[in-house]
Amino acid sequence: MTHTDISRRTAPPVTEPPRASVTAPERRSARRGWSPRRRRDFLIFLAFAAPNLLLIAVFTYLPLLNNIYYSTLDWTLGSPDAAVVGLGNYVTFFTSDDAPRVLGTTAVFMLFTVGGSMALGLLVALALNTKARGTTFARAAVFAPYVLSGVGVGLVWLFIFDPGYGVLSWIFRSFGAKSPEWINDPQLALVMVIVVYVWKNLGYCAVVFLAGLQSLPTEVMEAASLDGANGVRRFLSISLPLLSPTTFFLLITTMLSSLQAFDLIRIMTPLGNGTSTLIYEAYLQAFGAYNRAGYSAAISVVLFAILLVVTVLQLRFVEKKVHYA
């Protein structure tokens, strides 16, 4: 008898560890993919998320549905009676002379405010992305207008642009020229509001771009510098493509914010003289001289549809050009 045979006879038999007993309800829950642990995790998630979801439903989606319903009514604000007109308010808006003017003003305002804020914000971020003395104070000073009240900013800049006693009027008179009618001229009024809006939101874009610049990999920039690439070449070929996630984020947020800009327009041009965007036209129709609440609700729904389409198009097409790696 060999040593192998003896070891086989003397070795204890290998037994499997005892399996935990599983009850029938647990087996049925496991088959359905709803185990007690998953049920407990779901209840914990529901306890944390349900209050927020309830607040969003009550204060966001419920008013949205009510506004869509009001847009189908011929209703004067404050009147107890309203007539159902279906899509009549929408037909009235798109067939009126106001639609091209309001939609065109909205497009021009969005294009220049978004483009101006992002372009100037990127240039300011590049200037602040240094270790020179005073950059901390400069960053705070650039970002400060963004957190200021839009009403206060509008009042200060209204004093600056006033053609009679404003600061710009005094500068023009000191050179023997007449100050432009910033407030009374519809085209200049739109330019005035765009300039103030870009100035106020410039700091937000600059700070976000600055965070993106500081998160770029330094080894890539150093390798490009060793290969002989100058600063402009490194920015265009490396920094700018790597900033695409930041640019995409700013494009969405600034565009949505621009389409909903109200406070500066309300303070600087109360009558909407050449500055009536969709949201301000809805305000004028509901709370101005017309009190057309149903018509105003229809304009608000059009604005919501534009916001939704713009966001979906950006997520569908623009995001494909974003490099996250």
Rank of each mutant, 00 (worst) to 15 (best):
M1I: 12
V14F: 04
F287W: 13
R28W: 03
S71T: 11
A47T: 12
V142P: 02
S300A: 14
F112K: 00
T246N: 03
P217W: 12
P145N: 13
A140Y: 05
I267E: 03
E281M: 11
F287R: 14
A297I: 08
L264F: 02
G88V: 03
F159T: 14
G104K: 15
S149N: 11
V14N: 03
A20L: 05
R133D: 02
Q285W: 09
I183W: 00
L216E: 07
I44G: 01
V220M: 11
N52P: 03
A223V: 10
V147S: 07
A82C: 03
E26S: 01
L216R: 10
G88E: 01
L87N: 07
F209C: 05
W170A: 15
F94R: 13
R31P: 00
A261W: 00
P186T: 10
L315I: 11
R8E: 03
R139A: 06
G104N: 13
P80T: 13
V85L: 03
R37D: 07
I6P: 01
W182P: 01
N230H: 08
L250F: 06
I252S: 05
L190W: 02
V91E: 03
L243N: 06
V14G: 02
V193M: 00
A125F: 03
S149M: 07
R101A: 10
A293R: 10
A325P: 04
E222W: 12
T10V: 12
T23A: 01
F262N: 12
S79A: 14
F109N: 05
G154F: 04
V198E: 00
M1S: 07
V156I: 15
M118K: 14
Y324M: 06
E319N: 15
A305M: 08
R37M: 04
F93K: 13
P13M: 13
I183D: 00
E181M: 12
T135K: 11
K320N: 11
D263C: 06
S296Q: 09
P80V: 13
I279F: 01
E16Y: 09
I160R: 02
R233Q: 11
G86L: 07
E181G: 10
G150M: 08
I265L: 09
D97P: 05
F159P: 00
V91H: 02
S239D: 06
E181F: 09
A325L: 04
T311V: 06
V91Y: 01
T218D: 08
G134Y: 07
I171K: 09
A224Q: 12
A286D: 05
V156K: 09
L251T: 15
F175C: 04
R233H: 11
N89Q: 10
G274I: 12
G104F: 07
N230A: 09
A224C: 10
S276R: 15
L303I: 08
S296I: 09
N201Q: 13
F143H: 06
F59D: 07
I44N: 02
L128G: 09
A224R: 14
M268N: 08
P245C: 08
T105I: 11
F112M: 02
S225E: 11
L122R: 07
A83P: 00
T15H: 05
A177H: 14
D185R: 15
L240G: 06
P100C: 10
V153H: 01
P270V: 12
V318E: 05
P80D: 12
